[in-house]
Computed example of a mutant assay.
Amino acid sequence: MFQVRVLLVDDQEAFMRALVAVVGATPNFDVVGRARTGEESLVLASEVNPDLVLMDVNLPGIDGLEATRRLRARSSPPVVVLLSTHDEDAGEQYLAESGAHEYVTKSAFGPQRLAECWSRSQG
């Protein structure tokens, strides 16, 4: 069975642990890397070649929107799902600015939502 390789990007340890738990509870998804900054996410993405990046919008250094733009500009870009504490209304602007596939509020994120986001990204 195909494993979806997931890179997690968040600077808050508590939410990073929550992301690890969500990915671990979702069949066929596997954490291949964890980054705390936008810059670190770009380096790690080159090393681990993720299928999916779960990207916090608010990061130290380059933010999640800029990191997503840079990831999406690569020759074989990963699927990027933006995560934030901001409400759903912010999502359209974030998607337009970054080229991410989806935006999900952190409070709404869980195994079912993760699987749905991946499924939609695959057409």
Rank of each mutant, 00 (worst) to 15 (best):
F2G: 15
R5E: 00
L8H: 01
V9C: 04
D10Y: 00
D11E: 06
D11S: 03
Q12H: 15
A14M: 13
F15L: 08
F15W: 09
R17Y: 09
R17P: 15
A18N: 14
A18W: 08
L19M: 06
L19N: 03
L19K: 04
V20E: 13
V22E: 07
V22D: 03
V23C: 09
V23I: 09
G24M: 04
A25R: 06
P27M: 05
D30Y: 11
D30S: 14
V31C: 05
V32E: 02
G33A: 07
G33Q: 05
R34T: 12
A35K: 01
R36L: 08
R36E: 14
E39S: 12
E40K: 06
E40P: 03
L42A: 01
V43Y: 03
E47R: 13
N49I: 06
N49R: 12
N49F: 08
P50L: 00
P50F: 00
D51M: 05
V53M: 03
M55A: 04
V57N: 07
N58T: 10
G61R: 07
L65I: 14
A67K: 09
T68S: 04
R70G: 04
A73M: 10
A73N: 08
R74M: 11
R74H: 07
R74A: 12
S75Q: 13
S76W: 03
P78L: 00
V79K: 03
L83M: 11
L83Q: 11
T85F: 15
T85D: 08
H86Q: 08
H86P: 10
D87S: 11
A90I: 06
A90N: 14
E92I: 04
Q93C: 13
Y94G: 06
L95W: 00
L95E: 08
L95K: 14
L95D: 02
E97K: 13
E97F: 08
S98V: 06
S98Q: 09
A100Q: 01
A100K: 01
Y103M: 08
Y103N: 05
V104N: 05
T105V: 05
G110A: 13
Q112T: 13
R113W: 04
E116Y: 07
E116F: 05
C117H: 03
C117R: 07
C117W: 02
R120Q: 12
S121D: 02
S121G: 10
S121T: 12
G123H: 12
G123N: 13
